[in-house]
Design a protein around this nucleic acid. Structure first.
Lengths: 347, 347
DNA sequence: CACCGCTCTGGGAGCGCTCTCAACGCTGTC
DNA sequence: GACAGCGTTGAGAGCGCTCCCAGAGCGGTG
């Protein structure tokens, strides 16, 4: 690559001059070369190479009205963003997919509720072609913002206001939480367990509620003393486990709504000398790398393709953008990604 | 905010027409309004409000040659990016600082060694005004890339090729790892401990090496049997602890190069019934939220302001950009951020 | 041999903005 | 009352690119 020439970079004009063609032809070559005869293509490419030409993105955007960038909006409070490897992995997936389509990722972290104005201004400012956002809450302003800005958006996790998984109001990608929970509980049942408790996640997250629903699907008429509330953290899992043991010392299995809570529960069980899985079988959810396989015993859990979900989100958005551009193609639909039961030693 | 008008957004021209001024004056008002008489300013602002005018970023960039965006390049292998809350927190700090200066954050995750070409093309393509990158390795291509692209960059963590903390070849922000380690070891010494072991981090990370150096600073002529290698993970900390106990069952203190390893070490100590801190005092490093205060006993550790480091990185970069723009101002210098000893129960 | 129709190429407009520069009106001074 | 000097405004060029449209070139056909 030629050294950066002092001052300004070469323009298309310069490339055209060097190749002995018009700017229009040079442009055609740079953008794929359709309808340009071979010898000219080669001449232009040679000039590009020699001059180290790189298209000016702003100029291109100005006329095409496309930026080649999408925003990733993360409105989660800091705590979750930090503790949850979930986000990092989804972002990694998103990044991979976008990169493969020459699209850039602009990260928009929402710094508190007053910050949505800035987000709105940014999304409406034509800086990006579309947006990806996560786990919407009931009164989440993001959908309204993107609608007003006139850009397509895809969401990660089922928005809380959608009645059903599968609702098409806004396109989203989510794991089959309910199905996964059913799978887990059914597995415990098949193991012969009869008093299967559940440590639930926070009620304001649809993933937690869907998992609870899945638990209930299998165990019709659940005894409420078998369900304890947690907050998706290790500590809350430990507390919930202690609570459950107090209420139902006879329980013989626990399905925790995520691995972190399962590991907290496991700690309590161990402290009390309750053998896992012999006396109490334990199943988690997420198959989180740094947790599930590192506990003692390792967790049986429900695994999901987190990075794949990110890729899928990006793919749906890119498809929507393509549709906007070409005026045809299919409307993106929400996708529920499959989950699998990962059998380890805890159940 | 007015609804997005169908089709195209209002331009400066439209604002000017509505306010009854020239485009130039409208532009001046939109950009701060210096040198425009009050009544006209008001008229323009009113027009902006009524039309819901938002400046076209591409057009602006095209003429000013500034994008109002900086890249954050993360070249770490996936594993670290995921497991380490470090990154999320630094990014949060960076985001806060950039946001406060109306600058956007473009996230560039490097997907393998072959991906640097893409990064180079992007950085040279005038998409961003500057770059932030992390923990450079010896042969890291990022500095060469940014130099060639002609954009300023600031690094997080001392680059491995700089001989000294404080080296000015590239501006970076790092915690006072060596000083922190000294502080920790000196503290153990003041506690009366005499056989202080160290669980070191990976040799290819300067933070780990600096911490080892700090340990050595205090304990001149360290007995090599008192130092074990780890990899900044819980498991590696446990392994190292077991190794140390085998070699030196008489040790009475351990300084681990990070909290994760400390927690691994703690687990082993507990398993063997060795009372902490009575028989063996334990100090970690990082004061990682989800770890240090949640162990039993909670960890005494060296705390650093991770988010603050991120902010500082962004601030240094913004200052460099400002310098480029105005042609004056101070050259950004590397900053070593202070650390503090956080006393809890483990030592 | 004229003409049609095709492919390929170039001229030129224009995307929305900033910024230079000239013009303008006003005040103050001699 | 003329003019210098200042602060304010507007006209217009131009940033680098894409894309429309017209024209050139060329082969094939009647």
């Amino acid at each position: 690559m030629p050294e950066q020439s002092p001052g300004s970079r070469p323009t298309l004009e310069a490339v055209a001059a060097r190749a002995g063609v018009s700017r229009a032809t040079a442009s055609r070559v740079v953008n794929g070369g359709d309808g340009v005869r071979k010898p000219l293509v080669d001449k232009v490419l040679k000039a590009v190479e020699e001059l180290g030409y790189i298209p000016n993105h702003a100029a291109r955007t100005l006329v095409t009205r496309r930026t080649g960038a999408v925003a990733v909006v993360i409105a989660e409070p800091e705590t979750r963003f930090f503790s949850d490897p979930f986000f990092s992995q989804q972002i990694r997936g998103i990044s991979k997919e976008l990169t493969a389509h020459d699209t850039q990722l602009v990260l928009l972290l929402v710094e508190g509720p007053g910050d949505f104005d800035r987000i709105a201004r940014y999304l409406a400012g034509g800086h990006v072609d579309g947006a990806l956002a996560f786990s919407l809450h009931t009164d989440d302003p993001v959908p309204a913002i993107t609608r007003r800005a006139g850009i397509p958006a895809v969401y990660g996790g089922r928005p809380s206001w959608t009645a059903d998984p599968g609702d098409q109001a806004v396109p989203y990608v989510d794991a089959d939480n309910r199905g996964g929970a059913r799978m887990a509980v059914q597995y415990l049942r098949d193991l012969g367990r009869e008093r299967i408790a559940h440590i639930a996640g926070p009620a304001d997250q649809t993933s937690a509620m869907d998992r609870l629903d899945g638990y209930r699907d299998v165990l019709l008429d659940v005894d409420p003393t078998l369900v304890a509330d947690g907050a998706f953290t290790v500590e809350s899992g430990a507390r919930a486990m202690a609570e459950l043991l107090e209420r139902r010392p006879d329980l013989d299995a626990v399905f925790a709504a995520n691995d972190l809570m399962a590991s907290g529960a496991l700690r309590v069980l161990r402290e009390r000398g309750i053998p896992v899985p012999e006396q109490v079988a334990l199943v988690g959810f997420d198959d989180m790398d740094s947790v599930a396989s590192e506990t003692d015993p390792p967790l049986t859990t429900v695994g999901q393709e987190i990075e794949g979900q990110g890729r899928l989100m990006a793919r749906l958005l890119l498809r929507a953008l393509d549709r906007d551009r070409t005026g045809s193609g299919d409307v993106p639909e929400s996708v529920i990604t499959p989950v699998t039961l990962v059998r380890r030693a805890s159940a």
